[in-house]
Design a binder for these strands. Structure first.
Length: 399
RNA sequence: GGUGGGAUAGUCAAGUGGCCAACGACGGCAGACUGUAAAUCUGCUCCCUAUGGGUUCAGAGGUUCGACUCCUCUUCCCACCA
């Protein structure tokens, strides 16, 4: 029983520090029914969760199955500083209002995956604000600048002459202090958080709370491009709140290599099942596209319904395999004859008339499925389906 | 506080008086090929009903027929010294 739990917990992890501690905690749970706390921090800087976040959330959900109580930490204090992780520039500071709004949408999305009854939402502002200047200084004395600069992103930025704000140095300390205050047993985060996660361990020792958190790191999920990490600002993400059609389409657009990553980190299939599928693809008995469709179905179903997922699949085939016009196309209307380039901009499928001209020249623009090449074309009264490239559609009614 | 270096399109990065809407790379978009995969090849990549016009090279002034390029001030960054 314990092995099953441990295996499930370890699945897909990048690194675990102090695995023994996790084993002990699990044992205490099975033998004495004792629960333990698992901390995970979330920055309320982006209001929408994407699949990258759900990698962590899914792992937390697994802990909930095996006696873990989740400390869902909202970094509403630290958001005012901005975590330097993975950023090449100092982050913008958010207003109170933004943060409050983000938190609400954040948690409702998170509870699509987490068991609310086993989750405690905590805000680090509560205790960090009370820390005071003295407390802050004491905290800061635990760390040397040299040690700080060991951090990969700091040293990179330093080397490339990118500014580093002193406040950014404080960030890992505060995150570590959160673990002291919460007396967390385990903290989980992405591999890019390693420094901060370890800081929690170190500070727990310094502040003598008689335990040091185990650390479990999940790999960073790559975005749709397969190279950079999934993030909203890079625009390579699949959002939890994406429409079923979009979600399905986005999953299907990832590369084959990336698909296996997604299987490992996002699918609920067992590793054995995945290995089987993989060898099936390798020996040619399974078509990779079919496999990817199944993955897309699974993921879409998780955030919508099975029915919607299948509809998305049908829609996808309709549009792409048979190049028909999608069912739901945004509709626009205008008064009087209109120039095609202007029409495309008005329908929001082109960013400027210059861009529209270029695309027309390149044969990327279609009207009612017919490719057009005439830049000066005027649309007279009637209804048209405008299309740019393979995926941008709009209906226009000229009155 | 002192000295020196720097700021160029989404990013990196050329350009040091006219040939600059600005080389190149990456990214992005589109076309061909496909499985809306990858790889590859090709074109495009500031705006404007356009063989032309407009606005750009941190910001504000100035020199000049002409400035991204020279001068002055301002803002921000970096390095060294204190």
């Amino acid at each position: 029983m314990l092995d099953v739990a441990l295996n499930e917990i370890k699945r897909g992890t990048a690194e675990i520090i102090d695995e023994e501690r996790i084993v002990k905690l699990l044992k205490a749970y099975y033998d004495e029914g004792k629960t333990y706390t698992v901390k995970a921090g979330f920055d309320p800087t982006a209001p929408d969760l994407h699949l990258g976040h759900t990698v962590l959330l899914q792992k937390l959900a697994i802990f909930q199955k095996y006696g873990g109580r989740i400390q869902f930490l909202i970094g509403n204090f630290t958001a005012a500083i901005g975590d330097p992780t993975g950023k090449s520039a100092t982050r913008k500071v958010l207003t109170e209002e933004d943060i409050a709004k983000n938190i609400t949408s954040y948690t409702t999305q998170a509870f699509k995956i987490l068991d609310e009854s086993k989750t405690e939402i905590v805000y680090n502002k509560e205790w960090l604000e009370k820390l005071g200047a003295l407390g802050m200084l004491q905290l800061a004395s635990n760390l040397t600048v040299a040690r700080m600069l060991e951090r990969d992103d700091f040293s990179k930025r330093y080397a490339s002459q990118t500014p580093i704000a002193v406040s950014e140095f404080i960030y890992p300390l505060l995150q570590g202090y959160d673990s002291v205050h919460l007396q967390s047993d385990i903290e989980i985060g992405g591999t890019d958080q390693k420094f901060n996660l370890l800081m929690g361990r170190q500070l727990q020792k310094v502040y003598e709370i008689k335990k040091q958190q185990a650390v479990l790191m999940m790999p960073i999920l790559e975005g749709l491009d397969g190279v950079q990490k999934m993030s909203k600002s890079l625009g390579n993400y699949i959002g939890v709140t994406d429409e079923a059609n979009d979600m399905f389409g986005k999953v299907l657009s990832i590369s084959d290599a990336l698909m296996w990553r997604y299987f490992e980190l996002l699918s609920t299939k067992t590793l054995e099942e995945i290995a089987e599928i993989k060898s099936g693809v390798e020996n040619g008995s399974l078509h990779p596209k079919k496999v990817k469709e199944d993955l897309a179905l699974e993921i879409t179903t998780r955030f919508h319904t099975e029915e919607l997922a299948h509809e998305a699949k049908a829609e996808f085939e309709k549009v792409h395999a048979r190049s028909q016009i999608p069912t739901d196309v945004e509709e626009f209307s205008c008064e009087g004859e209109i120039w095609i380039a202007k029409a495309l901009v008005d329908c929001k499928i082109e960013s400027s008339t210059s861009q529209a001209r270029r695309d027309i020249k390149q044969g990327a623009v279609r009207i009612n499925q017919e490719k057009i090449s005439e830049i000066d074309l005027q649309l007279s009264v009637g209804e048209y389906v405008l299309q740019v490239g393979k995926r941008k559609f709009a209906k226009l009614k000229v009155n």
